[in-house]
């Protein structure tokens, strides 16, 4: 037996996402690429924010719990990213030509493709690269390998490593001692869950033993990273909660997360908002703000689903 964990007010959860999308839209020009990047840094380095934006926009459209303004802003944001930053897909081709065997252009392209954008030349390159042994045998961390297999699966390619095997190789797949978790393992946990559930679309993708493990120990990690004011990881852990069969929608964690959000919707990554050059500030907080939108949409959706499944208003149940 455990004591039930109080659930957050759905209006508060929803408002976090509304604010985050407003900020992301206002800052849309800062999702910039750097075509003349130092070769040491690499041209592909700045693709990651755009890829994450597309993934999360897709979640937002899919869940259908956003207001019309939020949906409209997200659509404008994704259009802007495709047309302006990716130059209608040409920048992805350029990235692939710069580093032909890199998976990054493919990973960024996938959510755009799922949202209806196309770049045929990139697709030809992806399909060729996928047939090489070098693509399949490239060395990755287990969670990154799982992500690539999941993306290959979504794209319609045969995963280089089958998904169950890739999942078993991850830290979370082994269900290690929960008291050993550190910041970097925290991100490994969250991304393993993102990939196994197709970013929250398919909660059944979590193996039952992993879901049970997370239901046991996630409350501790939420408590920990809330007190550490690590908002980016806390937000990702709130996404994990929303992916569980019985989410807690932890009221204390959500209240702390919402309180950290700035009036303009930005979510600091750690502790308070940084100050300084706006581009540099964006680079620090774009990820935590995207995560805020992601967590909000998914948790709102789960809260509404639980409400409709349980009209008596019992809400989410004790997770164990």
């Amino acid at each position: 037996m455990t004591m039930a964990i109080a659930s957050a007010d759905t209006r508060l959860v929803h408002a976090v996402g509304v604010g985050a999308v407003e900020w992301l839209h206002a800052e849309r020009d800062r999702f910039r690429l750097e075509p003349d990047a130092d070769p040491e840094t690499g041209f592909l380095q700045r693709f990651k924010p755009i890829g994450e934006l597309a993934l999360i926009a897709k979640v937002l459209f899919r869940e259908g719990v956003s207001g019309s303004r939020q949906t409209d802003l997200a659509r404008k944001l994704i259009d802007h990213a495709w047309r302006e930053h990716l130059d209608g897909g040409r920048m992805l081709v350029r990235g692939q030509r710069t580093e032909p065997l890199s998976p990054i252009p493919f990973e960024v392209y996938l959510p755009f493709r799922e949202l209806g954008y196309h770049e045929p030349e990139l697709e030809r390159m992806v399909e060729l690269c996928h047939r090489t042994s070098s693509w399949t045998d490239r060395e990755y961390t287990p969670v990154r390998r799982l992500g690539l297999s999941a993306f290959e699966n979504r794209y319609g390619l045969l995963p280089g490593v089958p998904l169950p095997e890739a999942a078993e190789r991850t830290w979370l797949g082994h269900r290690p001692e929960p008291w050993t978790v550190e910041g970097h393992t925290g991100y490994d946990i969250t991304h393993t869950v993102f990939h196994l559930t197709d970013w929250g679309e398919n909660p059944d993708g979590l193996p039952a033993d992993v879901a049970e493990y997370l239901a046991l120990w996630l409350p501790v990690w939420l408590d920990d990273w809330l007190d550490l004011k690590r908002w980016d990881l806390l937000g990702e852990l709130l996404v994990v909660d929303a992916c569980l069969p019985r989410p807690t929608l932890d009221a204390r964690a959500w209240a702390g997360f919402a309180a950290a959000q700035q009036p303009d919707g930005a979510m600091p990554a750690i502790d308070a908002m940084p100050e300084g050059d706006p581009d540099e500030v964006f680079d620090v907080v774009y990820h935590s703000t995207l995560v805020a939108a992601f967590a909000s949409v998914l948790a709102t959706s789960r809260a509404l689903a639980l409400l409709s499944a349980d009209p008596a208003g019992q809400g989410p149940a004790d997770p164990v």
């Binding site: 037996m1 008291w179 409350p219 501790v220 920990d224």
Partner: peptide, 17 residues
Amino acid sequence: AARPVDVARGFVRAVRR
């Protein structure tokens, strides 16, 4: 005895801290 999972969570929290 009625709350072993909660005590186990507290153990994890104490070690982490």
